[in-house]
Write a protein that binds this DNA or RNA. Structure first.
Lengths: 140, 140
DNA sequence: CAAATATATGTAATTATTACATTTTTGTAA
DNA sequence: TTACAAAAATGTAATAATTACATATATTTG
């Protein structure tokens, strides 16, 4: 559980009240929330909070490389403050997105040999889909 | 360049005129089109074609496992008739999505050891992002 | 303090996608 | 072939995520 304030400063992001709140939420809830999830969670304690602010803030974070943008879900973009490389698994029944260790033999910080040499690589995302254990158990 | 009609039958999909047209487009254009791309391309030759039909058709294809659904792009879902496992690279400048060979040491048809044993795996998508060679050259 | 800049807010627009009711086409059996 | 049922296609309207934009508030700096 890191300090959101420090984390923002470390990424050269001015730590406004709203930004700290959003970042704290992301650091404390590794559930890959959507913009709406974050807004719904924070709005009660921040009556003037605007959903546009959530979107603006997430864009600032993403542009600064402070969070990962996850597009595994067709419906809505999800966000993840964990920068350590890891993959994601989306359950097709319940919709939950799980963290998965990165495949041992892929080093996402290294150049991927399959990509043409004159392409510049910025990020690697690995998305698995299937059915999670809980949903498998509940199947009739 | 495969025959769309045969391809549909091989996947137990009734080959209506519209479905054949959509599948033919996907087989002939490996550009990872959006639903709108497909509609825009086919509408001139099929005056009664409806965009809803495009969406319905793509859902039928996806459910039958005849195409891949690609969510690398935040804006719109993209579709790919190539079933051979491969990764994708999205250029952050021009937005083009390129095909990339799958990492040699990942066999997507095999069980991925990082996933819990009681999870059922259906698909693996690997998405790279960065800047393609063409856009790098055109940078000023 | 005052001006400039950065950040936040609210409303309205945009747009991909889906829901749903209706129409058309296709397959089948009398 | 004709009639009926099922499948597929169509059009319109709704939904919902995201963005554009104008305005307001807060913060920094001279």
């Amino acid at each position: 559980m890191q300090d959101a304030h420090e984390y923002l400063i470390a990424h050269n992001i001015h730590p406004s009240q709203q930004r700290v709140a959003v970042m704290r939420y992301l650091l404390d809830h590794h559930i890959h929330p959507t913009a709406d999830d974050i807004y719904t969670a924070l709005a009660p304690q921040m009556p003037t909070l605007s959903k546009t602010t959530i979107y603006n803030t997430l864009k600032v974070f993403a542009d600064a490389g402070a969070i990962q943008v996850i597009t595994i879900d067709e419906e809505a973009t999800r966000y993840d403050a964990t920068l350590l490389p890891h993959a994601h698994f989306k359950c097709q029944k319940c919709g939950l997105v799980y963290d998965i260790d990165f495949p041992a033999n892929i080093d996402p910080t290294a150049r991927q040999p399959e990509i043409p040499k004159d392409f510049e690589l910025t990020s690697v995302q690995i998305y698995y889909q299937g059915i999670c254990a809980k949903c498998k158990r509940n199947q009739n």
